Amino acid sequence: MSDNERLENTKDRVTGKVREGAGKVTGDKKEETKGKAQNMTGKVKDKLKDVKESAEGAMEELKDKMHKDDK
């Protein structure tokens, strides 16, 4: 994952937590819910990127294995 993507995802999680906390303190359920959603968005983006990187790694290993088997 690029540093830029990681930074954006972290920003979503932190901003979401702040909004969620602000919503709780002020009693604004809508803001609290938006914060929870933003936090989850950052977490989901991180997980999806991890899955993508794992799949790419597995494909590279498979390609290497196929090339070795061809020889």
Rank of each mutant, 00 (worst) to 15 (best):
T10A: 13
S54C: 06
L62Q: 11
K17M: 13
T15S: 08
Q38F: 02
K45C: 05
R13W: 01
H67Q: 15
K71V: 12
D64N: 15
Q38S: 05
T15V: 06
L7N: 06
A58P: 03
D28R: 00
Q38C: 04
D50P: 03
T33R: 08
E20M: 10
D64H: 10
N9F: 08
V25C: 03
K30Y: 03
V18C: 01
K30E: 11
V14R: 01
M1I: 10
D46Q: 11
D64G: 12
K17E: 12
G21M: 11
M1N: 08
D3R: 03
V14C: 02
K24C: 02
K29W: 03
M59A: 15
R13F: 06
L48G: 07
D3I: 05
K11E: 09
Q38D: 08
G21Y: 05
G23K: 03
L48F: 12
D64P: 03
M1R: 06
V25Y: 01
K65E: 14
D50A: 14
M59I: 15
N4V: 13
R19Y: 05
Q38K: 10
E31V: 02
R13Q: 13
R6T: 10
H67I: 14
D28P: 00
M1F: 09
L7P: 00
A55W: 09
E60F: 04
A22V: 07
D12H: 04
E20F: 03
K45W: 01
L62I: 13
K24E: 07
L48E: 13
K68V: 14
D69S: 13
T41K: 14
D3W: 01
G27L: 05
K11F: 05
K45D: 06
G57F: 04
T41Q: 12
M40Y: 08
G16W: 02
K34C: 00
T41W: 04
G42K: 01
V25A: 10
A37M: 10
K65R: 13
K63G: 02
K43Y: 08
D12A: 04
D46N: 15
E5G: 07
K30A: 10
G23D: 01
D64Q: 15
G21P: 00
H67L: 15
E8T: 04
K45F: 01
K52A: 12
N9P: 00
E53A: 12
G16S: 02
K65A: 15
T10V: 11
G21D: 08
